[in-house]
């Protein structure tokens, strides 16, 4: 028995080593930092600071603004990612000529590095040379180039667009797999019972997909919470901090302000928020156990 356990642990070492090194250790260190005064720009040596970093954050208007921006960003991106993925999956599940090519196209953004796709968006909306301005002028929508990335709401939407573009393929794939696993008999039974298209979608497809949709919600919420690259590349948090999401704020605290204590505290707060979100969604998942009512 002992040797079996030992063998089990030995076999797990390759999997657990990176998990500990790059997962648990940094997290534990961040936890330690969050209770430490640790600012590399001051000559003050690190010391135990209790909840000082957390108190300091609660008084920092930029932190509050970053939280608000993150919430707003999630409010925009989560429903859109969910709806677009559902729409795409329904389309790709249909049988028509060329659907295979569409499936490849739908997955393409997933294969492009975030920095690259973000740079494309930045250039696309550039206020001097951006293609978007050119198109809008040619279509007569605007009569002169507009600095879209310098207006708070348009900047936020552009960042959201870049984020959505990259984060839609995975949920699409999940939902598509879900749709393809629906037994045909359910549709046939619904058809025999006289259910129209919308009723069939509501009673069969939607009910079957509900657990998957909740996973998509978890995924899209967490990706909104962790979104960094588009902000870094496209807006750098501006204009006027309007697109400064919590991740970018953490980055600033860590790598620009070199305030490791604050950065550690924010990391722990994000971790807590992530945990809460996952808990809430999984609770919802349990309550919403699939009950097909055909």
């Amino acid at each position: 028995m002992v040797s079996k356990t030992a063998t089990l642990f030995i076999c797990l070492i390759p999997a657990l080593t990176p998990l500990f090194l790059f997962g648990f250790y940094p997290l534990t260190y961040a936890f330690y930092l969050s209770f430490t005064f640790y600012n590399l720009k001051t000559p003050i040596e690190p010391y135990f600071y209790g909840l000082g970093n957390y108190f300091a954050l609660s008084e920092d208007p930029v932190f509050i603004r970053a939280l608000q921006a993150t919430g707003l960003f999630a409010l925009i991106t989560v429903p859109l990612i969910t709806l677009i993925s559902l729409g795409q999956a329904l389309l790709l599940a249909s049988q028509f000529k060329g659907v295979k090519y569409l499936q490849v196209l739908a997955l393409l953004p997933w294969g492009i590095p975030l920095v690259v796709s973000s740079t494309v968006y930045r250039l696309f909306f550039d206020f001097n040379f951006g293609l978007f301005n050119d198109l809008m002028v040619k279509l007569g929508v605007i009569n002169q180039y507009v600095s879209w990335l310098s207006m708070p709401w348009s900047a936020l939407f552009i960042v959201a667009l870049a984020h959505i573009w990259v984060n839609t393929p995975l949920p699409t794939l999940l939902i598509l797999a879900g749709i393809q696993s629906i037994p045909k008999e359910l549709y046939e039974a619904a058809y025999i019972d006289g259910a129209k298209t919308f009723a069939r979608f509501k009673m069969v497809t939607w009910n079957w997909l509900r657990p998957i949709m909740l996973i998509v919600l978890v995924y899209s919420s967490l990706s909104a919470l962790w979104c960094f690259d588009p902000i870094y590349v496209i807006t750098a948090g501006g204009p006027a901090d309007f697109t400064k999401l919590i991740t970018f704020y953490t980055y600033e605290k860590m790598f620009s302000y070199l305030n490791f204590g604050h950065a550690g505290a924010i990391t722990i707060l994000i971790l807590g928020l992530t945990g809460l979100l996952i808990y809430a969604y999984f609770r919802a998942l349990r309550l919403g156990r699939v009950r097909l009512r055909v």
């Binding site: 310098s150 006027a240 790598f255």
Partner: peptide, 29 residues
């Protein structure tokens, strides 16, 4: 030590308190 965090760093694109606040003039806030 806090000059760059306040004004914005001459060696970094990020950071600074004055810059985002000034940008509120540009956004019309």
């Amino acid at each position: 030590p806090w000059w760059a965090d306040w004004f914005s760093s001459p060696s970094s694109e990020a950071g600074g308190r004055v810059k985002p606040k000034f940008e509120e003039f540009l956004t019309g806030a």
